[in-house]
């Protein structure tokens, strides 16, 4: 039987752009160009490698987001994923991590899966909790933050580099995996890949398709409230000296004045 891999990806504002909050304190997605989160490229890459090593496999990329989020799906399809699912619904605006995990879990179940692969975190919200939430919701093992991953005989194996130790993990499929930026450089879409992507199927689902109550998502369904957001005050301009032979000593003088020495 074919190995069904679902990759969750996010369309995020470019981190090198000038990111802001909108008036309702959600992330302003209009002011800055969007793209496929770089950290999700690693997830697509590992999905493709696992698929290539399997007898038969199918890679579906899944995203939640406004119309533009299709760009993220196209990129993943041009890298080599087989098909895509776009969950789009006006009611989703302002959905938090808990709500996002609900929508993703329902969509993953509807798509059918043996293995879910996510990036280690989004580059905008950066909470890094969605993979664990997906495992909890789907009721399957979580093998997260892997810097090395492989699938063999219905078992996923990998290496998780923690603070105190590097661990070898092993779980039976179906399972949820997340991969780090140490897992392997993501491939660039080839010209052929870009052309082929145009013909690959992209399904659109809304909340009704997923049988999700609108009250469970969006700003209204969010279980956290942002009460205020303020730009961090610019740091006061510091002292900058040019080293003309005494730079190290001058720096020592500064550190001593600040009581670090």
């Amino acid at each position: 039987m074919s190995l069904r891999i679902v990759v969750t990806v996010k369309y995020v504002p470019d981190a090198t752009g000038d990111r802001h909050f909108a008036d309702d304190l959600t992330v302003d997605r209009d002011g800055v160009d969007g793209l496929l989160s770089e950290l999700d490229e690693y997830a697509v890459e590992q999905a493709l490698r696992i698929a290539e090593a399997a007898d038969a496999a199918e890679v579906t990329v899944l995203t939640i987001g406004p119309e533009d989020a299709k760009d993220a799906l196209r990129k993943a399809l041009s890298m080599g994923a087989d098909k895509a699912v776009h969950v789009e619904d006006e009611e989703l605006h302002g959905t938090d991590a808990i709500g996002t995990s609900l929508v993703l879990a329902k969509a993953i179940e509807k798509a059918g899966y043996d293995l879910v692969i996510s990036g280690m975190a989004s580059t905008d919200g950066a909470m890094g909790v969605v993979p664990a939430l997906l495992a909890e919701r789907l009721g399957v093992p979580q093998a997260t933050l892997l810097s090395e991953v492989s699938v063999e005989d219905g078992t996923v194996k990998g290496r998780r580099d923690g603070d105190a130790a590097s661990e070898r993990l092993q779980a039976r499929l179906p399972a949820v995996v997340s991969v780090t930026d140490q897992s392997g450089e993501a491939r660039y879409p080839s010209f052929k890949g870009i052309m082929a992507a145009k013909k690959k199927p992209v399904e659109s689902w809304d909340l009704a398709d997923l049988e999700i109550d609108t009250e469970e998502v969006g700003l209204g369904g969010a279980s956290t409230t942002v009460e205020a957001a303020a730009e961090r005050p610019a740091r006061a301009a510091g002292t900058i000296v040019r080293d003309e032979g005494e730079g190290g000593k001058q720096l020592a003088e500064f550190l001593a004045s600040q009581k670090f020495i």
Binding site: G238, V241, D243, G248
Partner: peptide, 28 residues
């Protein structure tokens, strides 16, 4: 990085870092 600093040294780290290390050792 200089936009963030309280104190910055424009210079070659291979000169500045050893001199700083020496100076700290001397002061201690």
């Amino acid at each position: 990085i200089f936009d963030l600093v309280d104190y910055g040294v424009v210079g070659d780290l291979f000169e500045v870092v050893p001199q700083l290390t020496e100076e700290i050792k001397a002061r201690k």
